[in-house]
Write a protein that binds this DNA or RNA. Structure first.
Lengths: 249, 249
DNA sequence: CGCACAGTTGAATGAGCTCAATACTTGTGG
DNA sequence: CCACAAGTATTGAGCTCATTCAACTGTGCG
């Protein structure tokens, strides 16, 4: 079923694009050597499922490139995204043997994986890994709580504006763009349906609100996915966040 | 402003009711001794604010008894609860100096506190503390993601049923009641307004849905706060969870 | 071409919100 | 003791925003 391909090249950790942000960020070179021994890459195509909720999960790993989603589904099919996994994000939980959520690649995806038991064993001997994992988990918890406010209290328009702000901000930090008042540009990595699942909306409402923000000049669209934000302050106001904000991360 | 009273008695960690579930759960007796040296108790009355979002936070700690809430507020006053803190839960984030959320005592509250820097220093030397904190943070992240499904995709009735299920389950584990099919009984530790803030609803909708569940025989009420659940399976169905569920924790 | 998929837009519906009235409890002060 | 205010909860009526259901467009692919 899985059309997964192994990477022929094994990348050197020293050249890894997520070296200083992933779970290995704090490792010294000798610790990195030990991780390097047990790592392996896995590649997934856009749309492929990395793992199903409830399945046995015998590995953990980091997203190296591409984007994946964490989703929960009710029996009647309602689904809610509970995490958006970007490069450097960690997948899997040490100490748990089955996956709690569906993990799906929304773009082509490369992961740096470790079999669970060697990783857990290594983590027990390497405080730098556990420290970094704690830090990352606390950050994720903060992000989850931020999203609880979005899901529970914001209007559809504010939800869309919030999502666009987050993608814009993240894109800016990833590509080191100027934070100045200039126009900001990025691609939406999600379909309308995925955005709806993220925001607790229907895809029709997502489409309508994006159209509305376009009509009101808050954003400009080229094609369906390429977004330009002429005034970031304005977008943040629409999101219901404090305009001079940015105290989140 | 704060009408806080210090506890005259300092409890021995050996007798502590949260000894094996709090952040200190994995500590050996010598590690516990070092924690005991730097701990101090703080007591808050129902309704008191423990700390305001944005304020300097120079301590961390565990809830020993009572209940507190973590809430986020938008400029226009809309508020969303993002955490419910029960005995053994941890408050504060090592490595961050200001509070990210409002923390409010909803019942009389006792906390076991540590000044932040001694605690961080001790944590650096005591892997058992960091390990336990990681475990607890991962659990909280799972709980937050469960709530994202509730907030994003469930109906008002399902939201209320979900909240009642969680309180019932927690109360059962806390008081070691029979898990059998018998009727279950507990007190609501939250006002209708607090429930609304938890569930992303208005307090009127909370009141209406509780009345509806009562009318339909899913629950019985004595007074406004004391709930009886004759059939837990039924309540779980109403919550939209798998009836034979319990695979969460 | 024909089909699948992503997206947009319209019209009607409804779940939950807003506004408002009422009731019950608790504590305070004359 | 009662009057009164404040806090909590319930219930009703009308409205609104997001959903549902549906039609339609555009694009890529076998």
């Amino acid at each position: 079923m899985l059309n997964e391909r192994s990477l022929s090249v094994t990348q050197d950790c020293g050249d890894c694009p997520i070296r200083h942000r992933a779970v290995c960020a704090r490792c010294e070179s000798d610790e990195l050597d030990r991780l390097e021994e047990i790592k392996y890459y896995r590649k997934f195509e856009a749309g492929q499922t990395v793992i199903w909720s409830g399945d046995k999960m015998d590995f953990v790993g980091s997203v190296v490139s591409g984007i994946a989603t964490l989703t929960q589904t009710m029996e009647d099919g309602r689904t809610q995204m509970v995490g958006l996994l970007l490069p450097s994000d960690f997948v899997g939980r040490p100490g748990r043997s089955t996956a709690a959520y569906d993990v799906v690649a929304t773009t082509d995806l490369v992961m740096c994986c470790f079999r669970k038991s060697p990783f857990e064993e290594l983590m027990g001997r390497t405080p730098h890994i556990a420290q970094r994992l704690l830090e990352m988990t606390l950050d994720e918890l903060d992000a989850a709580r931020e999203w609880m406010l979005v899901l529970g209290r914001k209007t559809a328009r504010e939800k869309i504006a919030s999502l666009l702000s987050i993608i814009a901000r993240r894109d800016a930090t990833l590509h080191l763009k100027s934070g100045g008042g200039g126009p900001l540009t990025f691609d939406l990595p999600l379909t309308r349906e995925a955005m709806a699942d993220y925001l607790g909306l229907t895809l029709e409402t997502v489409s309508r609100q994006i159209s509305a923000l376009k009509k009101d000049g808050v954003i400009t669209l080229e094609g369906k996915r390429h977004v330009t934000v002429p005034d970031m302050e304005r977008l943040l106001e629409e999101a219901g966040d404090d305009a001079d904000g940015g105290m989140f991360a």
